[in-house]
């Protein structure tokens, strides 16, 4: 591990000042960052510890929604009574990720910012445009079973690895950000970025900006499902995951909010999928039509070709389950 300075940020303004510099990273739970520092994938000269800045509460919003403090832990969030009753897809997604020990330490803000688990990103003796711009993408032509099929570029085919953000995307939550130019809110669906030609830029956070919370809208009910497909039944990243909020009215879809994990550099939300379902009667043909739209531009890289049919089948399973329950 490289020597680094550790500073407990005394205030949000100070945390913002510190992390505005190129050499400083904010640390909260550290479950991802410390691993990456040991591997020298991350090499900050300074860590700004933001754990004592507050914003660890989970509280009701005026419009009936819920605000999740960025420093609330994943466990606190998943077991929160309102999360469990009003946003079960979020609780299920969080509990599908990592392990109990990691969730106890990991924070909501940190979860959104976690880095990809691409094998070539975490091995500093291998090429990776994300870690070392211009060095190439080791995953293309390499071991790429876990890699993306949507929104990839020639520079990077890594996936965003998390589960929580997939549910937040389906819930159309927003991210509260402070620091830098002041406070702002960004929809989760726009928070993460596709790799394009700048795969090292993974989200919209500017230098000096810190996530302070995540705002959930007033609950919408419906059947909420988080389906994570994986090789072993815990402590594995998704081959594909689906967060779904489904409602039927008079036998027809009246709500179909669907986001997907394991497919892209960000939680994947394609508005056309829901639009194709709304107002329609559930049927296998309809599910396939939704899958056609979702996978229209999908591209496999050999080892991960299977994700295309797997995604189609998983979507079919989720919609079948949701509509059977609702019927």
């Amino acid at each position: 591990m490289r020597p680094f300075q550790y500073t407990r940020a005394p205030s949000l303004a100070e945390a913002s000042n510190m992390t505005a510099g190129e050499d400083t990273l904010a640390i909260a739970g550290g479950t991802n960052l410390l691993d990456l520092m040991k591997l020298q994938v991350e090499k900050p000269g300074q860590l700004a510890d933001i754990n004592r800045l507050g914003f660890a509460d989970i509280e009701d919003t005026d419009d009936g929604g819920l605000r999740l403090g960025a420093l609330a832990t994943n466990t606190e969030t998943a077991v929160h009574s309102r999360v469990r009753s009003d946003y079960p897809v979020l609780s299920r997604a969080i509990l599908a990720g990592a392990t109990q020990q990691l969730r106890n330490k990991a924070t909501n803000g940190g979860n959104l910012c976690q880095r990809t688990r691409c094998f070539y990103f975490t091995n500093i003796d291998q090429p990776c445009n994300k870690r070392e711009p211009g060095s190439g993408c080791g995953a293309i032509g390499g071991i790429a079973k876990l890699h993306a099929i949507l929104g990839t570029s020639e520079q990077c085919i890594a996936t965003y690895p998390g589960d929580m953000a997939v549910a937040l995307s389906a819930l159309d939550a927003t991210v509260d950000i402070a620091g830098g130019k002041g406070e702002r809110s960004v929809p989760v669906r726009d928070f993460h970025l596709l790799p394009g030609d700048t795969p090292w830029i993974e989200n919209v956070l500017e230098p000096g900006e810190v996530i302070t919370g995540i705002v959930l809208k007033a609950p919408v009910g419906g059947t909420q499902i988080y389906r994570k497909v994986r090789e072993r039944s815990s402590y594995a990243f998704a081959l594909v995951s689906v967060a779904a909020i489904i409602e039927l009215t008079d036998g027809k879809f009246s709500r179909a909010d669907l986001s997907f994990g394991g497919l892209a550099h960000k939680p994947w939300f394609d508005p056309r999928v829901g639009e194709a379902l709304i107002g329609q009667t559930p049927s296998e043909a309809l599910f396939d039509k939704a899958a056609d739209l979702l996978l229209e531009d999908a591209r496999g890289y050999g080892e991960n070709d299977f994700k295309i049919p797997l995604t189609r089948r998983t979507l079919r399973a989720v919609l079948t389950q949701a509509t059977e329950n609702a019927a």
Binding site: F119, Y120, G142, I143, K145, R232, S234, Y235
Partner: peptide, 25 residues
């Protein structure tokens, strides 16, 4: 074990990515 087809390095070289059964399995 997954080896890179070009240089033969072992890519999944920890217990997060080399999948031994977990308790639930």
């Amino acid at each position: 074990l997954e080896f890179d087809p070009r240089d033969g390095h072992l890519v999944n070289c920890d217990l997060a990515e080399y999948h031994v059964p977990v308790h639930r399995d």
